[in-house]
């Protein structure tokens, strides 16, 4: 039986997280189908059909899926997915929102946030905020799985596959989209950035984040924050890196004025190179950093900006 992957997109562009999920799916089986559900999203289906390893793209273009409302998506995916061996979704806020509905409708478990595929029915996933790794075997006929993007490389492009249009409208009329307030920024998104520079409580206030932004702009980096900085009201929650925020794994992660609470480390410790800048040499962040600089960030940041 084939594997069904659900694309993450905004009706215009295909999100990279989809490609990470495809890589995970290739380790579970050979026949891969990718569902694009949205409204006026043909361009996404075309982009999806070029991903290497995909045998077929299913396009469900209907107003009911415009905002990926969980009630409608859950019903659609459960309806299509009942004939597959695996249903695979990137563990983004959208995937996390509708996928458990699919599992419940199919009367099977969901295995969340997998970080490794051991076999077609056995997976690894972090528990207790990443302080332990569970190896879990699925006993169900259909495996419903969300994939932690940072644990798998994104799949590249290959020969184009065929796009089949489906005509299934699931409009439950239980919920309605009201609005979306998207944080506007010229910088890259946290979850796809190659370099991230994050600030913690040591930043002192929200204005001081401009010190990070200036460095970020020189490096083409995204700006993140620890939960302590978010809770203190310095910056909005969508900048939060950590177990309860975004899980990231860039090439370079620069932690500035961040002590390194377990919950923050859980969100960034898979980064390739970690730099910690903190004036407290006892800060736990130094125990995971490749390069540590014990110094006052207010001296370091202007200097760093000058040198880049």
């Amino acid at each position: 039986m084939a594997i069904l992957i659900i694309a993450e997109h905004d009706n215009r562009t295909l999100k990279t997280a989809t490609r990470n999920a495809v890589t995970a799916a290739t380790q579970m089986g050979d026949e891969l189908h990718l569902l694009v559900a949205g409204s006026n999203c043909k361009a996404v289906a075309v982009a999806a059909s070029e991903i290497a390893g995909i045998n077929r793209v299913l396009l469900s273009d209907d107003l009911a899926y415009e905002h990926q409302l969980a009630e409608n998506m859950g019903k659609l995916v459960a309806e299509i997915g009942k004939d597959y061996s695996h249903i695979v979704v990137p563990a983004t806020t959208s995937g996390k929102n509708f996928l458990p509905r699919v599992a419940a409708l199919l009367d099977v478990a969901q295995i969340s946030d997998i970080t490794a595929v051991e076999s077609e029915n056995t997976f690894q996933r972090p528990i207790y905020a990443g302080n332990a790794i569970a190896t879990v075997e699925s006993l169900d006929a259909i495996k419903v799985i969300s994939v932690r993007s940072t644990a798998f490389e994104p799949a590249g492009n290959g020969p184009s596959s065929e796009i089949s249009e489906l005509n299934i409208s699931c409009d439950c009329k239980l919920s309605a989209f009201v609005e979306e307030v998207v944080a506007e920024s010229d910088r890259p998104e946290l979850t796809s950035a190659e370099i991230i520079i994050s600030g913690g409580r040591g930043m002192g206030n929200g204005e001081n984040f401009t010190l990070l932004e200036q460095v970020a702009d020189k490096l083409g980096a995204a700006v993140g924050a620890s939960r302590a900085a978010v809770d203190a009201g310095f910056v909005p929650n969508d900048m939060q890196v950590g177990q309860t925020g975004k899980i990231v794994a860039p090439e370079l992660y620069i932690a500035v004025g961040i002590s390194g609470a377990i919950q923050h480390l859980a969100g960034m410790k898979d980064s390739k190179v970690i730099v910690a800048i903190n004036k407290d040499e006892e800060a736990p962040i130094f125990s995971v950093a490749d390069y540590g600089l014990v110094a006052d960030l207010f001296d370091v940041m202007p200097e760093l900006q000058k040198q880049l």
Binding site: T122, A132, A134, V136, D140, V288, Y291
Partner: peptide, 17 residues
């Protein structure tokens, strides 16, 4: 599901100052 095992995560080594 069946929990097969639980292991500690791979430790990251501290680098240099």
């Amino acid at each position: 599901t069946k929990l097969l095992k639980v292991t500690p995560p791979a430790e990251r080594q501290a680098g240099i100052k």
